[in-house]
Amino acid sequence: MFVQFTTWDIVRNLLEAGRWTLALSLIAFVLGGLVGLAILFARISKNRLLQALTKGYIEVFQGTPLLMQLFIVFFGLSLLGVDVSPWIAAAVGLTLFTSAYLAEIWRGCVESVPRGQWEASASLALSYTQQMRYVVLPQALRIAIAPTVGFSVQVVKGTAVTSIIGFAELTKTGSMLANATFQPFLVFGLVAAGYFILCYPLSLYAKSLERKFHVAR
């Protein structure tokens, strides 16, 4: 490893690794959103068992560090004899993490739809599913957009933790480059800038959505 790294080499390597950060974020967000939707429906269903199970699921993921969740997925699955690559473990771990948080955010949105909406639709003889589909979810969705976009920032930053199980995303690649170049300040500065470039537009967007929503109310 006695290669001389120019700054451009560092940037190029980081950009390549950044693509993995981006891919992992997208996968975790999309799959986490789908799983989160299923969790949401179970959480707000009238079935006590489903409610309790999903409440527990959400509490476990909100009450433990993401790092532990990744360790458990990564080492737990290999204990079960399933050989998982860091990439799969990272995707699965972050998906579960995201699903728990999104389900909880969305539950709050569903519950913020006023009771009068449920009563009016019930008095019109709509079934529970019809109330959800035509009255409650469309309103909850509008409320949910801003906090959901806001949470996507947490997902992007959360991907950094996957470096510890050896997944070569932005942070992991940054550590390797820092060791090889003896320029940790420069390298990690660039890594931080990379996260900022990904996250800042999302935060701005979430803020503008929030403002729009408050005006519209």
């Binding site: 006023p114 009068g116 909406q117 009563e119 009016a120 639709s121 035509y134 009255v135 309103q139």
Partner: peptide, 8 residues
């Protein structure tokens, strides 16, 4: 209802 409860 008193509060109308129209679907907004």
């Amino acid at each position: 209802f008193q509060q109308f409860n129209l679907f907004p």
